[in-house]
C-alpha cells in the first residue's frame, strides 16, 4: 500500500482523495476486464451455454461449443477463454468433490446498466444478433 505512507499527519482529505482515486482506478480495471471478456464471440457463446444450464464441466462446455456451435477450438483455448471470463467475474469455478463446475454470474453486467441507464419505458422489442 504505497499511498498509506503519506497519510499520517496530513489529515483525512488526502487519504480520502487517494482512496477515491484508487477506487476509480479499480472500477476502470474491472470495467476493462468485463468489456474485454464480452468482446469475443466464442466467450459470448460460452455465456449463452452457461445461461442455458449453469454448472458445467470443462468437457461439457467443449462438447457444446463443438457440437452446437460448430466451433473447432482446442480444450486449452477454451480454458483460456474461461480464465478471461473468470477474471471479469462473469464465470465462477467451483470444486465439488473430484469435479470442477463452471457457473454463470451475470452480476457484473449490472455496472453497464448503472453506467448507461436503460430508458424507463421499454421501446419496441428488437432482436439482438
Amino acid at each position: 500500500m504505497p499511498g498509506r505512507t503519506v497519510c499520517p499527519g496530513r489529515g483525512g482529505a488526502l487519504c480520502l482523495d487517494l482512496i477515491g482515486k484508487c477506487a476509480l482506478a479499480y472500477r476502470v480495471v474491472v470495467a476493462d476486464d468485463l468489456f474485454k471478456a464480452l468482446a469475443d464471440s466464442t466467450r459470448r457463446a460460452i455465456l449463452d451455454e452457461l445461461a442455458e444450464k449453469s454448472g458445467q464441466t470443462l468437457f461439457e462446455i467443449c462438447s457444446r461449443l463443438s457440437m452446437k456451435h460448430g466451433l473447432g477450438i482446442s480444450r486449452q483455448a477454451i480454458s483460456q477463454h474461461l480464465a478471461v471470463l473468470e477474471a471479469a467475474g462473469l464465470v465462477g469455478a467451483r470444486r465439488e468433490g473430484r469435479y470442477k463446475f463452471h457457473d454463470l454470474d451475470t452480476a457484473p453486467l449490472r455496472q453497464i446498466a448503472e453506467r448507461w441507464p436503460l430508458p424507463r419505458t421499454s421501446g419496441p422489442e428488437e432482436s439482438i444478433p
Binding site: K53, Q56, T57, F59, E60, S63, R64, M67, K68, Y99
Partner: peptide, 15 residues
C-alpha cells in the same frame, strides 16, 4: 452424473 442428458444434433450424451 456430472453431465445430464444433452442433445447435440444427432447425438445425445450424458456423463
Amino acid at each position: 452424473f456430472t453431465q445430464e442428458p444433452l442433445e447435440m444434433g444427432p447425438v445425445t450424451t450424458a456423463v
